[in-house]
């Protein structure tokens, strides 16, 4: 059976203008318990790669520049 991609609106948003991943920061990617954040090869900024979020907040709390915003996943909002 072929696989299809499933659309989902991800709860965690990163402000590219504030993110300093391109300067070597990996804090949010490091701390996430569900390991769902990554640094994009294209933009050099952090982003949510997998919609598997516990909306626990370490990514937002520990980001040195305040670039991360955690939202409640739509399904339970």
């Amino acid at each position: 059976m072929p696989l299809a991609t499933y659309q989902t609106s991800v709860p965690v948003v990163v402000d590219d203008a504030k993110c300093i991943a391109d300067k070597g920061c990996t804090v949010c990617v490091d701390v996430c318990p569900l390991d769902v954040l990554r640094i994009s090869d294209m933009t050099g900024k952090a982003y949510m790669a997998y919609d598997e979020c516990w909306y626990c907040m370490p990514c937002e709390a520990d980001c040195p520049t305040g670039a991360v915003t955690v939202n409640i996943p739509y399904l339970l909002r």
Binding site: I20, K23, G24, C25, T65
Partner: peptide
């Protein structure tokens, strides 16, 4: 020179 890089080093 870049403050962001200094920040990362401090972390």
């Amino acid at each position: 020179a870049d403050p962001a890089e200094r920040r990362v080093a401090i972390i």
